[in-house]
Design a protein around this nucleic acid. Sequence first.
DNA 1: TTAATCATGTAACACGTTACATGATTGC
DNA 2: GCAATCATGTAACGTGTTACATGATTAA
Lengths: 185, 185
Amino acid sequence: MSLKHGLLGLLNYGSMTGYELDKAFKNSLSFFWQAKTSQIYRELDDMERRGWLTSERIIQNEKPNKRLYTITDSGKEELGNWLLSSESDIADAMHLKSAFLMRVFFAGEMGTEQSLEMLRAYREKCLESIKGMSAAYDAISEYGAVLGDNRKSKYWEITALHGETFYDAGLKWVNKAIAILEDMK
Amino acid sequence: MSLKHGLLGLLNYGSMTGYELDKAFKNSLSFFWQAKTSQIYRELDDMERRGWLTSERIIQNEKPNKRLYTITDSGKEELGNWLLSSESDIADAMHLKSAFLMRVFFAGEMGTEQSLEMLRAYREKCLESIKGMSAAYDAISEYGAVLGDNRKSKYWEITALHGETFYDAGLKWVNKAIAILEDMK
DNA sequence: TTAATCATGTAACACGTTACATGATTGC
DNA sequence: GCAATCATGTAACGTGTTACATGATTAA
C-alpha cells in the first residue's frame, strides 16, 4: 500500500491539490514508484474515507475549480508507522520484476543478432538515464535550498545516488553481456 | 502480460503439469518475475482458452490426479512474437518499484539512527543475495549440462550475471549511504 | 508424529492500466 | 491557429495477493 504512503509523505510537506500531487509525484517519487493520474485521484478518495486527509473545494472563476488536500493527525500517524515498520519491504527490494530480463532468459529461441539488438537498445536507455542524473541532482539541490532543510535533501540525494549506481550497473552488465554474445559468434 | 509468456517459455522446453511449472518458475524466472501458485493456475486456464496450450488430465491412483499442459503451434507463435516485439519493455526495465526506496526518500521524518538501522538491514539482504549467487550459477551449469544446450544456458548465465551485478551495486550504494549518514552525525 | 511433497483449485479483494469526458486560458 | 497547462474524474478491464479447501503418501 505504498502509493498512499507516498502521497501522505508529499502532503506532509504541505497541502496540495490532486493535480499538484500528481506533478510532485512524477517529479520526485517516480524514480522508484509509478502511478497514473486517475489512480492518484482514486487513492485520495479512499484516503479521505480513512480519515488520513481532508479536502476543501476551492472555487475559481478563471480556471477550473480544484480540491485542496490536507493531511490529518491520523494521516501523520499512519505515515510515521509506515516509516518505522520495516513491513518486509526490504526483502521485496531484492526482487525486481522485468519483462526485459525474461526476454533475455528465453533469447536462446531467437537469433544472436536479434538478441544483440535488444541489448544494444537497453544500453542506449542506460546511457540516457545516466545523462539524466545531473538534472535530477540539480533539482534536488534547488528544492533543498528552497526548503532550507539539509537533512531532508540528504535523503533525496541518497535515493538519487541509488539511481545513479543502478544505471551504472546496468551499463556495466549490458556491456559484458554484449561481449559474451559477440565472443560466441 | 509477461507471466503468460514466461509460462509459454517454460512449456516450450517440454510439457509440464501446473505443479511442475510452478516449481520451475520459482527456480528460474523468480529472479525477475514473481507469481503465486494460484495465479499460475488461473493464467493456465486463460491460456488454454486462447488456444496457446492444451491440457490432458492424467489419472493417478497412488497420488492426486494431475493435468499435463502442452504448448500448441499458436502458443509457439505467440512466444516468438513476444520475444521479437520490444513492446516497450526496455523502457520499463529502467523503472524500478520499491517501497523501500520510498521509505529512504522520506527518512528525514525519522531519526538518523532508525534510518541507519533500515539501511543496515538492506545491507544484510545484499550480502545474503550475493552469497546465494554461486548456487544459482551451479544450478545453471547443471541444467545446461543435462540439456546439452550451450546456447540456451549462455542466456541464463547472462541473466544470473545481471543479478550479481545488481546485488553488488546495491551493496556499494548502501555502504555509501551509510557513510553519508554517519558523517552527518 | 510431524513436516514435506504431491496436486489442484475458488472467491474475494487490492492494486494498476486504458480509454474516455469536459472545457477554459495562456503562450508561441 | 495549435499546443500546453490547468483540473477533475468515471468505467471497464487486467493483474496480483490472500485466505481457504482437500487429502493421501513418504521421509525424519
